[in-house]
Design a protein around this nucleic acid. Structure first.
Length: 474
RNA sequence: GCGGGCGUAGCGUAGCCUGGUUUUAUCGCGCCUCCUUGUCAAGGAGGAGAUCGCCGGUUCAAAUCCGGUCGCCCGCGCCA
């Protein structure tokens, strides 16, 4: 019966089978030890003397161990299947440094399932000191290391927790398209050329924003999606060309309800998976103006001790202005996006003094990092059109780009709002990682490449012809 | 686009400031051969592996100094 390495502590005296990689080998000639690693962790396997038995009496008479005679051929990262008995180690041979250190598997059989060349990178250790280009080229090896395996496992658990939590509360998970429409506002789009409509393009979604609002018009009422948001803007340590958000939207809701939902969801998540973190509850609320005045930023770091790895300072920033002036162009632009509902009493200001308007926006921040922006949305087509115009969009352009939304709002639109917390950034902070790439299975480099896949790549002339595309080299 | 840091075997590094006991470029891990019955950073003996990112210059002599160039990382701009 196959057992995971870390489960041997529960199997003393039993005949078991381990399958995993040779993480380390210590060959004493007639006696060979390996650390066998599988997805659970590490267990020591001891191979008996070749042609003999173990000093402690071992397994059976000489000759019975013939099936482990190839133990001396083992090399790092060979994939092996080992059969044997789980034994408690004598007291002075216990290794306190590993969780399975009080036990070991006394091997009776060994099968080499797959050999390995010497690895280009070590998968032992945390890997931080290895050139990242090489780590990414051999990501499938890099992911073998304990730290990254743990990151993927925790990520999977957190996402499942979110899904369960929201599903239990009546939310419906809906997938929205990846092939969508380019709108020149906001971030730069990744474009996908259309073959069937030569000369036209799809855009990959910067966020499912419009779709989720249309789902509210459809009457879904409570929507969420673990959604990819894709933006063609330069990267940072906490920014990738594509990242994952918990996108959610509710009808007949209030900022209070959204904030309280997110707060209880993630508080419970923290208690479940990160009980060691010190977190203030309820999360403080800081008005935008106060944050700017006191901290000079709308994503203040509210930790008391910034060197404390376990301190997590979640907070809400509220009472954002609707609009601000671009620092360079001095043109008016939305603080969040152009679908944000102004606060009650602020709406009338749009004709007189739009910069004085306060919005329903609320941001979730953590340790000086923005984790999410959310708001109530505009549902009045007239007000929405006013916003478009305020942002110097012609009525024709607005109807061309957003006519579907404006029209949808004429068919019985529920008031709605939502939020979209960034999963990668949250995990980066909680796992104490210095970079978002450490919590993403297959991330891209700072200049958008994947050294493993060789992305982006040239394409065949034929593919370009079908799309009606000619490459202009400068 | 701008600013900063880095580039020496498969990986991590020393040497660079102050050019020459480096004519044969340091050390650790990994790799290969042999020895080794209790290791867990196993140990012992031996060995292979580097056009010092690339191009050019200065010099009797360049990993080292100078110029250019390429690549990566971090930050700014940008990211509704």
């Amino acid at each position: 019966m196959r057992v995971y390495a870390t489960d041997i502590v529960k199997k003393e005296g039993e005949e078991i089978e381990l399958i995993g990689w040779v993480h380390a080998r210590r060959d004493h000639g007639k006696l060979v030890f390996i650390d066998l690693r599988d997805r659970s962790g590490i267990a020591q396997v001891v191979f008996p003397a070749r042609g003999g038995s173990l000093p402690d009496g071992g397994r059976g008479a000489p000759g019975e161990n013939a099936s482990t005679d190839n133990a001396g051929d083992l090399r790092l990262e060979y994939l092996v299947k080992v059969g044997g008995e789980v034994k408690k180690r004598p007291a002075k041979m216990v290794n306190d440094k590993i969780p399975t250190g009080a036990y070991e598997v006394s091997a009776a059989s060994l099968e080499i399932l797959s050999k390995s060349e010497a690895l280009p990178i070590s998968v032992d250790g945390d890997g931080y000191d290895i050139d990242e280009e090489v780590r990414l080229k051999y990501r499938y090896l890099d992911l073998r290391r304990e730290r990254l395996r743990r990151n993927l496992i925790v990520r999977g658990k957190v996402v499942k927790f979110i899904r369960d939590y929201l599903s239990q509360r009546g939310f419906i998970e809906v997938e929205t398209p990846l092939l969508t429409k380019s709108t020149p506002e906001g971030a730069r789009d990744f474009l996908v050329p259309s073959r069937t409509q030569k000369g036209k393009f799809y855009a990959l979604p910067q966020s499912p924003q419009q779709y989720k609002q249309l789902l509210m018009v459809a009457g879904i009422e409570k929507y969420f999606q673990i959604a990819r948001a894709i933006r063609d803007e330069d990267t940072r340590g906490d920014r990738q060309p594509e990242h994952t958000q918990l996108d959610l939207e509710m009808s007949f809701t209030t900022p209070e309800e959204v904030m309280s939902l997110v707060e209880s969801l993630f508080t419970e998540m923290m208690e479940t998976f990160f009980p060691e973190k010190k977190m203030k509850t309820p999360w403080p609320r800081v008005p935008y103006s106060e944050a700017m005045k006191k901290y000079g930023t709308d994503k203040p770091d509210l930790r008391k001790d910034k060197n404390d790895r376990d301190e997590i300072a979640f907070a809400w920033i509220v009472d954002f202005p609707n609009f601000e002036l671009d620092k360079q162009t001095k043109e008016i632009q939305p603080v969040h996006h152009m679908f944000v509902q102004p606060k009650e009493g602020s709406v009338e200001l749009i004709d007189k003094d739009p910069l004085k308007m306060t919005s329903t926006q609320y941001d979730w921040v953590c340790n000086g990092c923005e984790l999410a922006s959310g708001s109530m949305r505009i549902t009045d087509p007239e007000l929405q059109m006013k916003v478009f115009k305020l942002l110097r969009m012609s009525e024709e352009k607005a109807k061309k780009d957003f006519g579907h939304l404006l029209e949808a709002f004429t068919y019985g639109v529920p008031p709605h709002g939502g939020i979209a917390p960034g999963i990668d950034r949250l995990l980066m902070i909680l796992l104490g990682e210095p970079n978002i790439r450490e919590v993403v299975a297959f991330p891209k480099t700072g200049d958008f490449r994947d050294p493993m896949m060789g992305t982006p790549s040239d394409v065949d002339e034929k593919q370009l012809d079908e799309l009606g595309i000619k490459i202009v080299k400068d």
